[in-house]
């Protein structure tokens, strides 16, 4: 697996993935829907697949002496690494924003632990829809991405609506007040658990689909 991950970094990763990591700086914007900073990276991941298609990655990889599902596992591996990196890179920007400008974000959730928990769920939805749909054909990219974006938008819209319209949630989650940190950490942990379970499920389904298709 180590060699396949190496291959993903050496050949498959798209340079925009590194560029989009810097989108974490958007958390410095005083009033902004901060999910957008993370959404950009799904575009970077999409570009990995576009590049893969143009470069016949699927043939290069599946002709190596590896089990076919290992190719899927490695691709999931690099995507999870990128998604986690996106979150990790954003943390200092969130800390900086909140210490520089403690005023409330008028455009949505504060850049707090709960936001990161919701971002984990957003990435989980992306992985489930985009990757399992893609591995049905290992070729068609457009529709899976459109569906994944649609589902992420619905999730973000619904999460924001519920939090903003439910006073108890708004008070506890959409705030920088440290006394609500336990509630926010609960959302973060919940998001991490959802991310892990859903991504593993997405991998299992994708690998099973990929093994069945004729290339």
């Amino acid at each position: 697996m180590k060699d396949l991950i190496y291959k993903e970094f050496k050949l498959a990763i798209h340079p925009t993935c590194y560029l989009f990591l810097l989108m974490g700086f958007m958390l410095l914007i005083p009033n902004y829907p901060y999910y957008v900073a993370f959404f950009y990276q799904t575009l970077g991941i999409f570009f990995i697949f576009v590049g893969g298609q143009a470069n016949n990655d699927v043939y290069f990889t599946t002709l190596l002496p590896i089990p076919k599902r290992a190719a899927v596992k490695a691709r999931f591996g690099i995507i999870v690494i990128i998604e986690l990196a996106q979150i990790v890179v954003s943390i200092p920007f969130a800390v900086l924003r909140n210490s520089l400008n403690p005023a409330a974000n008028q455009a949505g959730m504060e850049a707090n632990a709960a936001l990161f928990g919701l971002v984990f769920i957003m990435f989980a939805i992306f992985n489930l829809i985009f990757l399992t749909m893609f591995y049905k054909t290992a070729f068609k990219l457009g529709l899976p991405y459109v569906f994944a974006c649609g589902a992420m938008a619905i999730f973000v819209g619904a999460a924001e609506a519920v939090i903003q319209l439910t006073p108890a949630l708004k008070i506890a989650l959409d705030t920088l007040d440290p006394s609500y940190l336990p509630q926010q950490l609960a959302v973060l942990i919940f998001g991490m658990v959802v991310f892990t379970l859903v991504t593993v499920l997405a991998y299992l389904r994708s690998a099973a689909r990929f093994e069945k298709i004729d290339l």
Binding site: Y6, K7, K10, L11, N55, N56, D57, Y59, F60
Partner: peptide
């Protein structure tokens, strides 16, 4: 495959 990559890079992988 990987037409834009150098031979050395592909061999290295």
């Amino acid at each position: 495959y990987y037409l834009q990559k150098k031979l050395g890079t592909i061999t290295g992988v």
